[in-house]
Design a protein around this nucleic acid. Structure first.
Lengths: 190, 190
DNA sequence: AAGTTAAATGAATAATTATTCAGTTAAAAG
DNA sequence: CTTTTAACTGAATAATTATTCATTTAACTT
């Protein structure tokens, strides 16, 4: 028998992400995805039951691989600011290097494909960060206001940094990164 | 002759915004829009040439009405921080009270409907804010880094505040608003 | 090397959705 | 009150897009 070319799934994912970045979830068709992935339309349906299944599987993959990068090199035993800086940098890096993934996740959040359960799963991947913020409050290093607002500043700013970086083709030097981290830090620090 | 019910256009816009908030640009059909607006499908085509025209017209309306609120009560003659606070509050207020509009604009930005020209027009509405930021830098009140990053923190955080407020059904008291403004201000201040 | 099995193809079909249009209604003009 | 005109309707049609399937291809097994 002929084995599946497992790499084909990655090609399909890559194609989908690129197309969604270019023209949104509303702008993709299965034919476009197949063509972009360099396969026949019918082949898509060997790997995915239907369009919804493709989008959901990709959403899941995006969440999982994002999560794995957000906390790499993060050691809860280190001082708060070190840990916070590590995670901040990781998220910025991911958002910029996987910009089409960021757009895809954003689009999925308001789409007919993704159910409430998946949205909850997306929120869950930020939990370690949530705990770190709580710790920072206990150590009186950051402001004692509801964690959701501290996260708003951090995550919201990061999303916007990624968008501007990509839209305006900016090269993120470490000077720029540190300046942006400083903005965030000055905002949340006690 | 029978005159056009000009209010119908608003119903169509409202219907579109509500549907897009619920299931994204990818999730709407002209039939759904018509039904939600309480009119026949054919009637839609009296007011809009086609789907693309509807989306584009609505995008334009959203941009224009947003712009008009962002700078209401803003007087460039006032001290920097007062002006900045006014605009900050205006944008937060607009994003929350017109949340479906915010989602619509976000979705349009990566869609097959909106052209580059409209995107530029969207960026233009922030220009008075851009000038205010430049002024703040000249007066040494805020950090001397590229305006785009100062805006990232402000606008990014605001977008995230609006999302969390709506997703978690939070009531924005003036205490919460002021605490959030403080986060932003501490971030950008010199 | 022949046989077997599943992947791969892409044109055909099914399903969905955009758009039209013949008929109906309602407001305004005369 | 009648006529006129354009809005309005929603079923019919056109266009697009998802999905299937008969056929071909390629890899593995014996």
């Amino acid at each position: 028998m002929k084995p599946r070319d497992e790499n084909k799934i990655n090609e399909i994912y890559k194609a989908t992400l690129n197309l969604v970045k270019a023209s949104g979830l509303a702008g993709i068709t299965m034919q476009m995805v197949a063509k972009e992935a360099g396969i026949a339309t019918g082949t898509l349906y060997i790997y995915f039951k239907n369009k919804e299944a493709l989008i959901n599987a990709l959403f899941d993959v995006c969440i999982r691989s994002s999560a794995s990068t957000f906390f790499s090199n993060y050691d809860p035993a280190q001082p708060f600011k070190i840990g916070f800086h590590t995670i901040w940098l990781n998220i910025v890096h991911r958002r910029v290097t996987h910009f089409n993934e960021s757009i895809f996740i954003e689009q999925c959040f308001h789409s007919p494909f993704i159910d409430e359960e998946s949205k909850v799963r997306l929120r869950k991947i930020f939990e370690p960060l949530l705990h770190l913020i709580e710790r920072g409050k206990k150590e009186h290093l950051i402001k004692d206001i509801d964690t959701t607002w501290l996260l708003s500043l951090m995550v919201g700013a990061i999303n916007e940094i990624a968008k501007r970086t990509m839209y305006y083709h900016i090269k993120l030097t470490s000077e720029i990164l540190e300046a942006n981290f400083q903005l965030c830090w000055d905002g949340i620090k006690a």
